[in-house]
């Protein structure tokens, strides 16, 4: 039995999905894509045929962050640009490297000396324990050295990195690059603090 379709905001196609009426499908067709689903746009070549399944295709120009070549509406202005300026793109915007994680910690720098730092480690993989480790500053990438301060936070991940056709055992230390403090953030914190203080003193009621 076909369900009656009302094309209004309150219509819920999934309510009628079990009946698989065309009404549900009509509604679904109004929304061709998930607005914030990540399907990587294949701007640079026409829609491809559906790939073979169950056949890992390491060489194919498909992102690991996707699984199928979704055809998708390409905005007209983008299409114009690509056709005008980049008619023969061969390379693809892909991350070629992969990482198989074996262990991960979050670290906080406690002390720094001339050539090393001591950090507390929280095990993010097994969540069983905390540790402390001393790292030589040589282990830190030179671009990250200015970030090494007491209280600084970093991630330390151990695993295998697949790069350039090779599998390499990797130990990656990466400091968090949190945005620097802005006046608006500090002012907002002060304002919230004042409000909370008044609230608990009973001067302000909601």
């Amino acid at each position: 039995m076909k369900a009656k379709a009302k094309r209004n905001r309150n219509y819920d196609p999934f309510q009628y999905a079990a009946f698989s009426g065309s009404a549900a499908l009509d509604y679904l067709n109004l929304r061709k894509e998930e607005p914030t689903a990540p399907s990587i746009k294949r701007h640079f070549f026409p829609p491809s045929d559906a790939p073979d399944y169950n056949k890992p295709d390491w060489a194919s120009e498909m992102s690991d962050l996707e699984n199928t070549s979704h055809t998708q509406e390409i905005p007209e202005d983008v299409k114009e640009v690509t056709q005008k300026y980049v008619p023969n793109i061969i390379s693809r915007p892909l991350i070629k490297n992969r990482f198989l994680e074996l262990q991960k910690w979050e670290g906080i720098v406690l002390q720094i000396s001339k050539d090393s730092m001591v950090a507390r480690l929280i095990d993010l993989s097994e969540k069983e324990s905390e540790g402390e480790a001393e790292f030589a500053l040589d282990e830190i990438h030179s671009d990250d050295l200015p970030l090494v301060k007491p209280g600084a936070i970093f991630y330390w991940t151990i695993g295998y990195l697949d790069k350039g056709g090779q599998r390499i055992r990797a130990s990656i230390i990466r400091f968090r690059r949190l945005p620097r403090w802005r006046t608006e953030e500090l002012d907002a914190a002060k304002k919230d603090a004042e409000y909370t203080q008044k609230l608990f003193k009973g001067d302000q009621q909601d």
Partner: peptide
């Protein structure tokens, strides 16, 4: 759109 397929960088992506 910004994405990573490497777990050491998942939190780094968010920070970015």
């Amino acid at each position: 759109y910004a994405g990573t397929n490497q777990s050491p960088y998942i939190e780094i992506l968010k920070d970015l």
